[in-house]
Design a binder for these strands. Structure first.
Lengths: 217, 217
DNA sequence: TTTATAATCAAATCCAGATTTGATTATTTT
DNA sequence: AAAATAATCAAATCTGGATTTGATTATAAA
C-alpha cells in the first residue's frame, strides 16, 4: 500500500542537510523556506510535506547537528584514558567536526534566543496548531537538555582531571564555558578556503586550550 | 528656529540602548520595531524619525557596542606595560564590559550574516531607497573594518609578547581567535542573576586564557 | 492492473511586521 | 505672540515570506 521511500526522491535528512547549509550561511532571519527548497530543486510548499513549519524544521536541523556533535565526543569522553588525553581529543574532534559539518556549527552558535521565544498559539487557533506547538515545545526542551549533556561531557572530564591532579584546581565550570566559546566560535569564522585546514586549526586550538588547565608539574 | 533636543524626549542614543537590550534578549529575527518602541513607550513609526529603517538601526546598535568595546580596550593596548600585563587587563576589561553593556554583547556575537546579506534595492526603487542603501553599505563596510581593528588590538599585543619572549611561540592568529571566541561567548551565557558577577568571571577566564600563552619560564 | 499513498507542484491565501502618511502637540527662537 | 521645526501618534499601506489548498504524477503493494 504505502509507497516506500524511493531513492530518486528527497528524504527528510536531505532537507536537513540542505537547511543546515543555508542556515549556517545566511543565519535564521535571512533563511527562507524557498531558499532551502531551492537547494533541493523543490518548491517551498513541498517542505511542509516533511515538516510542520519553519521552526520545527530549524529545530530538527539543530538537533541533528547537536547529536552529531555528541556522537563525536561521547565515545572519547568515555574512553579509558587519562583526562588530559581525553580532553585534548575531545577538543580536537569537536573543532574538526565544526569545520566539516555545517549542521554542527549551526547547532552550536545558533541564536537559540529566537527559538526560545516561539510563543504558543492563541487560544482560538486550530487544533493542528496546538498540536504542532506541543510537539515543538517538547523537542525544544529535549534539545536544551541535550545541550547540557554536551557541556557536561566536557565538565566531567575536567573535574576528573582536577581530582586526579592532572589539571590545576580551577573553576571547572568557567573553564568549560571558555572552552566551548572558543570552540563554537570556529563555526563562525572558519572558511574552507582559509589559510589552515580544520585539523590544523583543531590541533593548535587544542594546544592553547590545554595549556590553560594543565598542572605545571 | 530648530527645536533643541529637550530632556524629556527620547533621543537617538536612548533608542540604541533600548534596541541593544531587546536585540540581546530576543535576537534579530524576533526583534520587532514595535518591541523596541515599546521599551521607550513609543510607537513603532516614531523610530523612523531617527533611523531610516530597521537594518540601519540595528547596524547603529552594533556600531555603538563595538566602539564601546574598542574604547575600553584600546587605552589598555596602548599602555606602556609588558605584554602579559596588557593582555590580561584587556581580556578582563572586555569580559567585564560584555557583562555590563548589552550593546557590546550584541555587537560581538551578533549574526552578522544577516546584515551581510542585505541586498541593494531593485533598479526601479525610489531614490530614497538607493540613498539609504548606499549609506547602509558604507556603514557596514566601516563596521567590519572596526571589527578587524578590534581583533588587531589583541593580535598586536600577542605578537609583541611572543617577540619579547613573554609568550610561547604559538600561532598568534589562532590564539586570538580562541581568545575572542571564549570572550564573546560570555555575552551569550552570562546572566546577571548567575553564580558569579562579571568581574569574577572576567578574572577567572583571563586566568585560563593567559595560561594558554605564557612562556613556562 | 488496480488501489492507495507518497512526493510534488502551481497558485492562492494570510499575516505579521516594516514602512509611510497626514495630522497633532510641544518647544525653541526671534 | 508668531514662526519654524521637532517629536509623536494613530491609522493606512505594502510586502515578503510562511503556510494552505487542490490537483497531478509516480510507485509500491495487493
Amino acid at each position: 500500500m504505502a509507497r516506500k521511500p524511493a531513492e530518486q526522491t528527497v528524504n527528510r535528512d536531505a532537507i536537513l542537510l540542505a537547511a543546515a547549509g543555508v542556515l549556517q550561511r545566511h543565519g535564521y532571519a535571512a533563511t527562507t523556506m524557498k531558499d532551502i527548497a531551492a537547494q533541493l530543486s523543490l518548491t517551498a510548499g513541498t517542505l511542509y510535506h516533511y515538516f510542520a513549519n519553519k521552526d520545527t524544521l530549524v529545530l530538527a536541523v539543530l538537533e541533528m547537528g547537536l547529536e552529531a556533535g555528541i556522537a563525536r565526543i561521547e565515545p572519547l569522553a568515555c574512553a579509558d584514558t587519562a583526562p588530559p588525553v581525553k580532553l585534548r581529543s575531545m577538543i580536537a574532534a569537536h573543532i574538526t567536526g565544526l569545520t566539516e559539518q555545517p549542521a554542527i556549527g549551526a547547532a552550536m552558535v545558533f541564536e537559540l534566543k529566537a527559538l526560545a521565544q516561539v510563543a504558543p498559539p492563541a487560544a482560538g487557533a486550530r487544533p493542528k496548531d496546538h498540536h504542532d506547538f506541543a510537539a515543538f515545545s517538547e523537542h525544544r526542551r529535549h534539545f536544551f537538555k541535550r545541550r547540557d549533556d554536551f557541556e557536561n561531557l566536557f565538565l566531567k572530564v575536567v573535574k576528573a582531571g582536577i581530582t586526579q591532579g592532572d589539571f590545576r584546581a580551577i573553576d571547572a565550570s568557567i573553564y568549560v564555558k571558555t572552552l566551548l566559546g572558543a570552540q563554537n566560535w570556529v563555526g563562525v569564522w572558519y572558511r574552507a578556503e582559509g589559510r589552515l585546514n580544520g585539523a590544523t586549526i583543531a590541533e593548535r586550538m587544542a594546544d592553547h586550550l590545554m595549556y590553560g588547565v594543565m598542572s605545571l608539574s
